[in-house]
Design a protein around this nucleic acid. Structure first.
Lengths: 142, 142
DNA sequence: CGGAAGATGTTTGTACACTAACGATCTGAT
DNA sequence: ATCAGATCGTTAGTGTACAAACATCTTCCG
């Protein structure tokens, strides 16, 4: 390994490392601005539920890019906070139907407001065109 | 909350959500391609150590964007794998000096190769210009 | 109808990631 | 020289995130 070869790999220029650091900054902004101590994943689950109304636990996981073990924990914590309700599905006894609680319904407008503010602060260093470029590029790496 | 207002917040268009999904894809690629079962953070710690030669545990954390609790666990696992060595600093009794083991030294070239391959696969959907644009934009959100 | 294949949810284990609090040690200013 | 403040590493607690294994239930094919 010559110096030239070693120099060719710079940690700070790797997508993975940058993704981790940007995610860290975003997480800090999120934590400061999210209502009710909601985490990004809990937030995502609530927003999706508000969109679809009701769905099974595993389906909610697929709709929010969480695997079955992860969505299970997220739903449990949301239930503990009184934001979602769990009920057996009469049509399929394997399923648990998840719905927003009335408290969560009332919280939804605040969620959207907080979400906008968090995104705005995260993207603050970029202008409108750069933001759009970034989102499009990220989307293609999904 | 009208339909128009609700439509104005789309989870799939939020930076935070996209960052999480891209990070997930990258993590999967990383896991498939990293030598020795190394995780992204373990990999980052090794690469930094290879650069700086030796440093204290907390400093290694700062050099790799990990807080003290996180770097502690990462270093412990690297020690368990025989890739780093810990020694008390004779000049400052608070410090633990971390160095690469000979095995890790021998592994460094493979780390750079794997790192390049992982980055390449992660960025595969983008052309060279787009990659550069993405890295620059991400860097500004750090 | 009956059984294979697939889906649903649960649990266990490992690994980040951060907060908070803690004791030990070092440093700098008085 | 000492003492306040900073730094170093540790621990405990919470919350993602994934793999793997499991029991239960549904569906669909023969």
């Amino acid at each position: 390994m010559t110096v030239a070869q070693a120099a060719a790999y710079r940690l700070d220029d790797q997508v993975g490392y940058l993704l981790r650091r940007v995610s860290q900054r975003h997480a800090a902004i999120f934590q400061a601005g999210a209502p009710d101590g909601l985490t990004p994943t809990q937030f995502a689950a609530l927003v999706r539920l508000a969109e679809v109304g009701r769905c099974s636990q595993n389906q909610l996981g697929r709709l929010t890019a969480m695997d079955v073990a992860t969505i299970k924990g997220v739903v449990s914590r949301l239930e503990a906070k009184g934001l979602v309700r769990l009920a057996p599905d009469p049509e399929d006894r394997r399923r648990t139907v998840i719905t927003l609680s009335p408290e969560a319904d009332a919280l939804v407008p605040a969620l959207y407001r907080a979400g906008h503010a968090i995104t705005e602060e995260t993207l603050a260093p970029l202008d409108a065109r750069e933001r759009l470029t970034l989102l499009k590029l990220l989307d293609r790496l999904t």
